[in-house]
């Protein structure tokens, strides 16, 4: 990639928008995932009885079961949310950047 091309893409508003949007989105989702997971682990480390509490008086199923399963589903849903937005919005922006290069 030569210097002019770098300058041109760098100053392309679509490129700026793509980088800004994707970086912040990826960062937010990563932080959410890490907070949820480390929250789960620290909950176990400091308050193990919380997840060991039964959901009701007539069941042995504990709070930990839906919470643990929930973390698994949550991880999958987050990848789905990212993939959906990236497949549409980010890819559209990226295609605009690529198309603008063809015109030269």
């Amino acid at each position: 990639m030569n210097k002019e091309l770098v300058e041109q893409i760098k100053n392309d508003p679509n490129y700026k928008e793509l980088v800004a949007k994707r970086t912040s989105f990826a960062l937010i989702l990563s932080v959410i995932m890490l907070v949820v997971y480390f929250g789960f682990i620290l909950l176990i480390a400091y308050f193990p009885h919380v997840l060991g509490t039964p959901l009701g008086s007539d069941t042995v199923t504990t709070v930990g079961i839906p919470v643990g399963m929930g973390v698994i589903f949550f991880a999958f849903i987050l990848t789905g949310i990212y993939t959906k937005r990236a497949n549409s919005e980010f890819d559209d922006l990226n295609n605009k950047i690529k198309n603008s290069l063809k015109d030269i």
Binding site: L27, L29, Y37, G64, V71, I72, A75, Y82
Partner: peptide, 16 residues
């Protein structure tokens, strides 16, 4: 379950 969750949560981070 705790152990297996640890092996899963790296994946979203890899994606992002």
């Amino acid at each position: 379950l705790i152990y297996s969750i640890g092996f899963l949560v790296g994946w979203p981070v890899i994606l992002f």
